[in-house]
Amino acid sequence: MTATSQTASETPTMAAPTTAATKTPPGAWSKILAPYREPKTARSIFEIAVTVLPLLVLWAVAWELHARGLWWAALLLTVPAAFFLVRLFMIQHDCGHGSFFRQRQANEWVGRIAGVFTITPYHYWRQSHAAHHATHGNLDRRGNLGVIETLTVEEYRALSPLRRFGYWLYRHPVVMFGVGPIYVFLISQRLPIGMMRQGWRPWASVMGNSLGALAGIGGLIWLFGLAPVLIVNVVTMLLAATIGVWLFYVQHQFDGAVWMRNGEWKRDDAALAGSSHLDLPQPLRWFTGNIGIHHVHHLSSRIPFYRLPKVLKDHPELNAMSRVGFWASFRCARLALWDEAAGRLVSFREARRTA
């Protein structure tokens, strides 16, 4: 969707709020957080084991339950299985940042193999995700792959009625968290959309991942039959995809998030004020690989997820920064437009009130 953008001189924008964390000189956080960037091989292997083994056990028990006619019990087990699959994606995510192992090839191969389970092409996703890290919170650099489209109030008002309806429908929670995960994981990531002219590597990543996933699902159907694979494995994947999209949404679409124009955008400010600290209760923090500590992740993406809580413990000034509580996070679903005059995300209803 093409939007009518405003220049920084035409519309005021909100600067990042000043806190103890934002008073740190530009670039200083890179040095402060450098000691946390070193992964521990034994710990990384342990994290893989306690994620993959329970996932496989849950699937095996669910297949057996289905074989005994207890399909409803098998379906119930897809819920914990989905959380373990989300955690496996977080391992893949860290591999994409080169933060899970010291050795590049170890990150590459673990990321590729995990991608078959999460049906996420490793190299293609890594490249699009790197673009997200380089531009998040920048109003003048929107439109990157893998980023939730966000219009300003003025851009939305400038659209035709039909395109306004299209954007409203796109941002509706049923579409965003119901249809969206299916589209992203089962359709969008089956082609290197946005990278089709970048040579053979994006194609190899996407096609290799699709072939690996098809081979895995085909093998399971051959062993157990179509019905148990649909009920156990496919449902697990869809639930995990919905959780993943929800997490990505709340990480940057929250009340208090700050977006800036090119001239004002600074990496550290965008990380601290444009990325949330989703304060999840245990065991959700564990299942989501501490990805809720997203502002710290954007400050230093090379920190392994199992070291992020240590950062908050050692630097309490980061604890309250951009914090969003678990229950409060569900209210973020109503936010759909950036109001440049007010310097905040607003709902469609709030935008109509100020028309």
Rank of each mutant, 00 (worst) to 15 (best):
T2D: 13
T2M: 09
T4I: 12
A8L: 05
T11C: 02
P12N: 08
T18Y: 01
A20I: 00
A20G: 02
A34E: 15
P39Y: 10
K40G: 13
S44P: 10
E47P: 04
I48Y: 07
A49I: 15
V50F: 12
L53P: 08
L55M: 14
L56T: 13
H66L: 03
A67R: 13
W71M: 11
W71Q: 10
W72A: 06
A74V: 01
V79C: 03
A81F: 00
L85V: 05
V86C: 07
R87Y: 03
R87E: 02
L88V: 04
F89N: 13
M90N: 14
I91L: 09
Q92M: 01
D94G: 08
G96I: 09
F101P: 06
R102L: 04
Q103H: 09
Q105A: 02
N107H: 04
E108A: 04
I113E: 01
A114M: 08
G115A: 13
G115N: 13
V116Q: 08
F117K: 03
I119D: 11
Y122I: 06
Y124A: 09
Q127E: 06
H129E: 04
A130Q: 09
A130W: 00
L145E: 14
I148V: 09
E149V: 04
V153H: 00
R157A: 12
R157H: 12
P161N: 01
L162N: 05
H172D: 12
V174Y: 02
M196F: 08
G199N: 02
P202Q: 07
S205D: 12
M207F: 13
N209Q: 14
G212M: 10
L214D: 01
I217S: 00
L220N: 09
I231Q: 01
V232C: 09
N233S: 15
N233D: 15
T236K: 00
M237E: 12
I243R: 04
I243D: 02
G244A: 13
F248K: 10
Q253F: 14
Q253A: 00
F254G: 10
D268R: 05
D268Y: 08
L272M: 11
A273D: 01
L278A: 00
L280H: 08
Q282G: 03
R285A: 11
F287W: 15
F287R: 01
I293F: 14
H295V: 08
S301C: 10
P304H: 14
P304D: 14
P304W: 14
Y306S: 13
R307W: 11
R307E: 15
V311Q: 05
E317N: 07
L318I: 10
N319S: 12
A320Y: 02
A320E: 15
A320N: 14
S322L: 08
S322F: 05
F330E: 08
F330L: 12
R334Y: 01
R334W: 03
A336T: 00
A342N: 06
G343Q: 10
S347H: 11
R349Y: 05
A351Y: 07
